[in-house]
Design a protein around this nucleic acid. Structure first.
Lengths: 329, 329
DNA sequence: TTGAAAGCGATACCAG
DNA sequence: CTGGTATCGCTTTCAA
């Protein structure tokens, strides 16, 4: 049925040990044995059983990837970065979409562990003491020094967003705050608040308990019920920003004249909507790549120069913001 | 280090065989042995090594999932459906993002096979004779009777889209055609053409060779260079439709007054953009669920009543289409 | 430079 | 009902 290393050995007229050596380029093998083995491999179209390998090595060629919400376009972009990098290293991804469900996160880590994953990259934050033997990189701000992480400059991002709003005749500002358990969201909020205070601008908070795409429209509706007179919003992410913009338009509010908004992430669609969404761009793909890179540096026991990699953010101005105030530059 | 079935056996004072029986609820085990084993399992926090299981059973708890483009929001929605179903069955997903690259598809199938996946769900179409031993469900129309598939009613979808356009004073119609290697795209085109001919409406074709989100904006630009006078478009999918709409607005063309457009898919964002995108809704999540369900029916050797499941599509009218012609009903 | 054989951690057959 | 053991396919000593 399945061709195994024994079949190859038999056809090549050598032992399985020799075949293994050739396959893994380990130990000494004579040129002639090498050729015989390679021919047999080709002839039989043999590919080693990775499960058997994994069992022996106690390490598979899988990287576990945990995402909070695969339907938020920011995360597929991250996933693509991760995938591209791990593929180059000969690894593949085990995907886990967590959806705000700590149970699911735990279950996936358990499964990853039972399957000997080489490491985990997670954009989800839970307490996972139990799995601290698995090499893990967190794609968000972390407070824990012992963890490895890749994130963008959330504080600066928060400031930039607030500043962009402040410079544009903001009378009634509302900050939509991301889930409190997401560290990055808290840092952004700090950036927002510090900046607005510095500029002497009043604001109110609207707390959300999820970034889930599913709830965006509902949340947008609730938001406007509560703040019907808002004229400037700092949204928790682009998905919610777009939903808010749509809700505003639906209510006959003019964007950006009477309602301006800035998002966070710069996901692929943010520039394709109308009005184009102004936002703080996070390099999603690069975050994925860097996360994977960091993980492999750990796996390969390279020296880690930075265990908390921070990437730059950038203010992107599109049509969802008003013109700057005259007196500003 | 890792706790194994032997540790459990030792602690429980029974043999590994008995532990295995308890774990798998197979064969006869006395109540007392059962209790001893369960206690030991709990005490040691033991979870079986899935790799060893997989090696013996020649079948893992993984399902391979192949997607053409994870950055197109339609596919994450499908993936979510697949994931929800396979999770319920105790399985997890191996993810492969193919990106129009037949090599990558082959590589992934190879990897899946080397890792004993239980089955594969693919939204990518290649010739994969070699892997026909792996139970596989295709999420698209297939012509091959031997394959299993889940798809929506592409022909009807094509007709509905064309009809919606035809009923709205279409003077200069262009059909944007999806990649020729995608079966569904060809069927939709047939639906488009048949309907337009029936209505005696002239049209031109604009062939694309990809659905990739990356190329959407570039393609939209090229499109308008070629058809500057178009007033009605049947787009190949929602991503491209949104890009075209944005390009039109950028060029100062009024949507829908001077440029109307209908997409395909109804991805989550289609209703969140402005103007809301009219489209043919495909039940992405349900396609994923049904695909997984079909795959498990195959794996569990249930009787398959339909090996080619077709789901309904639906015309969704939003603001990107003009008002219906007076004389129509 | 090579091969025999001992595992890796489960499962399941076969005896008892 | 229970336990001993061969086995899944591969890697890696160890000895030759």
């Amino acid at each position: 049925m399945m061709t195994t290393i024994r079949d190859v050995a038999k056809l090549a007229g050598v032992s399985v040990a020799t075949v293994s050596r050739v396959l893994n380029e380990s130990g000494y093998v004579s040129k002639s044995s090498q050729e015989k083995v390679n021919q047999a491999v080709k002839k039989l179209d043999y590919y080693p059983n990775e499960v058997a390998r994994s069992l022996f090595q106690k390490k598979s060629n899988f990287i576990g990837l945990l995402l909070p919400d695969i339907t938020n376009p920011f995360f597929p972009a991250v996933a693509k970065g991760v995938e591209d990098y791990v593929n180059r290293k000969g690894y593949s991804l085990l995907l886990g979409n967590i959806e705000n469900n700590p149970e699911k996160e735990k279950d996936y880590l358990q499964i990853f562990s039972q399957n000997n994953v080489a490491g985990v990259i997670t954009a989800v934050q839970g307490e996972n003491q139990k799995f601290n033997k698995i090499p893990m990189v967190v794609l968000d701000r972390v407070d824990d020094e012992r963890k490895y992480s890749v994130h963008s400059d959330d504080y600066l991002g928060g400031q930039l967003a607030a500043k962009a709003i402040a410079q544009r005749n903001a009378k009634k500002v509302v900050i939509m705050v991301g889930p409190t358990e997401v560290n990055g969201a808290n840092i952004r909020l700090a950036g927002n608040e510090d900046q607005l205070k510095k500029e002497n601008i009043e604001y109110e908070l609207f707390q959300t308990d999820s970034y889930q795409t599913d709830y965006a429209e509902e949340t947008a509706h609730i938001f406007f019920e509560k703040f019907s007179d808002v004229d400037s919003v700092i949204a928790s992410n682009d998905v919610y920003a777009i939903a808010l913009m749509k809700e505003a338009i639906k209510r006959g509010i003019k964007v950006p004249e009477d309602f301006q908004i800035i998002g966070y992430d710069d996901m692929p669609f943010s520039r394709m909507v109308y009005p184009g969404l102004s936002t703080i761009a996070q390099p999603a793909y690069e975050i994925g790549v860097k996360g994977a890179q960091l993980l492999f540096d750990i796996l390969e026991k390279k020296k880690i120069s930075e265990s908390h990699i921070q990437l730059a953010v950038e203010l992107v101005i599109r049509e969802s913001l008003r013109k700057k105030d005259e007196n500003e530059r």
